[in-house]
Simulated assay, not measured.
Amino acid sequence: MSDQLIPLNIVIGDRTYRIKIRAQDEEAVRNTIKIINDKVIEFKTQFSAKDMQDYIAMVLVWYATEQSQLTKSTLEKQSIIDKLTHLEGMIDRTGT
Rank of each mutant, 00 (worst) to 15 (best):
Q53F: 05
I33H: 01
K20M: 05
T45I: 10
L70E: 06
Q24Y: 04
S2E: 10
Q46G: 07
P7K: 10
Q69K: 12
E26D: 00
G95Q: 13
I33N: 00
G89K: 08
R93D: 13
I10P: 01
T94W: 09
K44P: 01
N31S: 12
K34R: 08
Q53L: 07
T45V: 07
T65I: 05
M90L: 15
I21W: 03
E66Y: 13
D92W: 02
S48L: 12
V61P: 03
I19H: 08
I81Y: 09
I41C: 03
Q4G: 07
V59G: 03
L8K: 12
I10M: 03
I80G: 01
D51I: 09
I33D: 01
T74R: 11
I36A: 07
T32K: 02
I35W: 11
T16F: 07
E66D: 14
T71F: 06
D82C: 07
R93Q: 14
Q4S: 13
K83F: 10
Y55G: 12
I12M: 02
D3M: 06
I12T: 05
S48M: 08
Y17Q: 00
M52C: 04
I81R: 03
A64R: 09
Y55L: 14
Q69Y: 04
Q24A: 09
K39M: 01
Y17N: 00
D51S: 15
T65G: 05
E76Q: 09
W62A: 09
G95A: 13
R30L: 02
T74H: 12
R18D: 11
E88H: 14
A49E: 11
K72G: 03
Q46M: 13
D25K: 05
